[in-house]
Amino acid sequence: MSRADLSKQPSDVAAMFDEVSYHYDRTNAVLSVGNASLWRVATTRAVDPRAGQLVLDVAAGTGTSSASLARSGARVIAADFSPGMIAVGRERQAGNPNIEFVQADATRLPFDDDSFDAVTISFGLRNIVDPDAALAEFFRVTKPGGRVVVCEFSRPPASAIRSAYYAYLRYGMPVFARLASSNPSAYAYLMESIRDWPDQQTLARKIARAGYESVKYRNLTAGIVALHRGFVPMPSSAPGSGAESKGDQ
C-alpha cells in the first residue's frame, strides 16, 4: 500500500490518495470525530461564494467541499492532483451542473491570470511539495479584490489541548484508521504532516508574502484547525499590507 512521507513527492502523494479515494470522506468523518462537516461549513462561509461567481477549490478530492460551495449558485472548478479522487468526485457529483473537475498541479495551475473570484483549499496545502509556490499560483489566478481561504490543520495554542491532540494523533488515530480506512498506513503520514506543519501566524505570514493583504485567521476546534483568509489588492492598493492574527470566534 502507498503512503507519502514528509518529502511530499507528488507521485507518492497522488498514489496514496488514489488508494484511499473511495472511502476518503467516510474516513475523514470518523477521524475528525464528526468535526469535518463543521469545518466545511465554516470554510464555505469564509469563502462567501455568490451566484455567478467562479470559485477554484484546490485539492478538492471527491468534491464534498465543492458541493458546499456550489449550493450558492457559484460555479466551482474542483481541482485535484489525484486522478483517483477526481474519478470518484465526478461519479458522486455527476448531477451537479455547477461543478467541473480538473486534474491540476497546485504549483502550476492551468488557468489564466485573474480568473477566479475566490480560491480555496481545505486540508491540502500541507500535502504540496512547495506550499509557497502554490500560494503564489493562487494569487496569480485570483482576480483583484478576490480572496483566498485556507482551511488547514494547525497548532492548538493551549499546551494542554495541544498535548492531548498530539496523543490522539499518535495513539487514537491509528486505531480509527484501521477501522475506517482502506489504507491505514497512509494516516501515519497524516500525523507526521500535521506535526511538521507551521503554526497559525507562520502560515499567515506565508500568505501575506504571496501578495495577499488583510490576512487574518481564526481558530476552529481550539486551534486544531485554523481558517486563514486574505484578499488580492485592488489596482490602486499597495500589495503586501502584512498579516494580522485573530483568535477564536
Rank of each mutant, 00 (worst) to 15 (best):
S7E: 11
K8M: 11
Q9K: 13
P10G: 05
P10F: 03
D12Q: 13
V13I: 15
A14S: 15
A15Y: 01
M16Y: 04
M16V: 07
E19S: 12
S21H: 01
S21M: 02
Y22K: 14
A29P: 00
S32A: 05
V33A: 13
N35M: 15
A36K: 10
L38Y: 10
R40H: 06
V41F: 10
T43K: 06
T44H: 10
A51R: 12
L56F: 06
A59S: 12
A59Y: 01
A60C: 15
G61Q: 03
G63L: 03
S65T: 14
A67F: 00
G73M: 04
I77N: 04
A78W: 01
D80K: 04
F81E: 03
A87K: 14
A87R: 15
V88Q: 10
G89H: 01
R90T: 07
R92E: 05
R92T: 02
Q93W: 03
Q93R: 14
A94F: 00
G95A: 02
G95V: 03
N96I: 04
N96Y: 02
E100A: 13
F101Y: 06
V102N: 07
T107C: 13
R108T: 12
P110G: 04
P110N: 05
S115H: 09
S115W: 06
F123G: 09
F123R: 04
G124S: 04
L125K: 01
R126N: 06
N127F: 03
N127E: 07
I128C: 10
V129G: 09
V129F: 09
D132R: 14
A134G: 09
F138I: 06
R147W: 05
R147P: 06
V149R: 05
E152N: 10
S154T: 12
P157W: 03
A158W: 05
I161C: 08
I161S: 11
I161A: 13
R162D: 13
S163I: 09
A164R: 12
Y165I: 08
Y166F: 11
Y166S: 07
Y168G: 01
Y168I: 07
L169W: 00
Y171M: 02
M173E: 01
M173A: 00
V175M: 03
F176E: 07
F176I: 05
F176Q: 09
A177M: 00
A180E: 00
S185P: 03
Y187F: 01
L190Y: 00
M191I: 00
S193H: 05
D196S: 13
W197K: 08
D199G: 15
Q200R: 15
Q200L: 11
T202L: 11
T202N: 13
A204H: 08
I207N: 08
I207P: 13
S214C: 10
S214W: 07
V215Y: 10
K216Y: 15
Y217R: 13
R218Y: 06
T221D: 14
T221Y: 08
A222Q: 10
A222K: 04
A222S: 15
I224H: 06
V225K: 06
A226P: 12
H228D: 12
R229M: 12
G230L: 07
P233F: 01
P233D: 02
M234D: 10
P235R: 02
A238R: 15
A243M: 09
S245R: 15
G247F: 11
